[in-house]
Amino acid sequence: MKILVVCGSGLGSSFLIEMNIKKILQELGIEAEVDHADLGSAKGSGADILVGTRDIAMQLYEIGREVVSLDNMIDTESMKAKLVEAIEKLKKK
């Protein structure tokens, strides 16, 4: 499973979210490849789950992958819940 975190230039906020997601996955004992990138690179990345803050996520849906839209970059609890939900959905497919 590949998770890609996306932000405007793919340097700062996506990287910080990536570090938090890695920590969450470790706690849950889930193995996944997590990376970060800019909006322009998201389409060709082949990731199973795309993660972004609400404003970025709006533009991720058209790619046709599972999308996690975060209302807030720093709330790791809701990040965890949304991530688990996306992973469950992915398993059912």
Partner: peptide, 27 residues
């Protein structure tokens, strides 16, 4: 480099306030 810095810094400064990139305020 950044994850290493974050790991080391948070260990040495337990009550640290992580300072984040500007899109943190956009939502």
């Amino acid at each position: 480099i950044v994850p290493a810095f974050r790991g080391i810094a948070l260990k040495i400064v337990p009550d640290a306030k992580p300072a984040l990139d500007c899109p943190v305020v956009y939502p």
